[in-house]
Design a protein around this nucleic acid. Sequence first.
DNA 1: GGGATTAGAACTACTATGTAGGACTAATGG
DNA 2: CCATTAGTCCTACATAGTAGTTCTAATCCC
Lengths: 110, 110
Amino acid sequence: MADTPLGEFEQVVLLAIFRLGENAYGVTIREEIAAHTDRDPSPGALYTTLARMEEKGLVKSRLGDPTPDRGGRAKRFVKITPSGLDAVARAQRSYQNLLRGISLPGLAHG
Amino acid sequence: MADTPLGEFEQVVLLAIFRLGENAYGVTIREEIAAHTDRDPSPGALYTTLARMEEKGLVKSRLGDPTPDRGGRAKRFVKITPSGLDAVARAQRSYQNLLRGISLPGLAHG
DNA sequence: GGGATTAGAACTACTATGTAGGACTAATGG
DNA sequence: CCATTAGTCCTACATAGTAGTTCTAATCCC
């Protein structure tokens, strides 16, 4: 299953997790996505996708310790697996490849 | 319906059409995708997606003249609409935005 | 110390997108 | 006029995207 084609939203979630590093869990991932894209996914949308990706081995999760806060329930921290990292890189590469030589009107190069 | 979030494959198809310019129709689009990505979509996969995108106003199609070839059936040429172009550009931008500041292991920059 | 309150996760249900394979169609050529 | 061929379209199903709601476990306050 090394060549699972990543879905659009899966990629967005993976990248958000990547950015967050050690502090990636449901709530922060959602915030990160909202901050860096035009999306604002519902909790359900995120957790469902997270669960599916874990099934496919793209991410791994571990339950953290409860924080000393009101409602400080234990967070489920998420981390990208090597296989997940590979999948993002691969997706990026083929995307980049398709873009090669194209200049899209209305899109700034960078 | 200006903010339709483009799917992964939709984007690939759109970009292929863009590259092909005036000569974009079923067969050539399929070849273009096969040549520039790791995918090799079946005819059905492509035509279905094309039909859906036309419904959403992302592409427009017109029937060409039959070519004087054996089996030279009339081709259905496809063109990206302004709204389609906008959708790709938007998708690109938010993708780029999410990538900002990230350096992915195993992915060459460029 | 037990119910109100709250952060956070998980379930259910549904829609949309991705995908294949084969049927259909319209043209030529012998 | 039927075999052959380029090309399109139909049918059916798998997978990804999405929302809303409910469940859970922890503090806070009286």
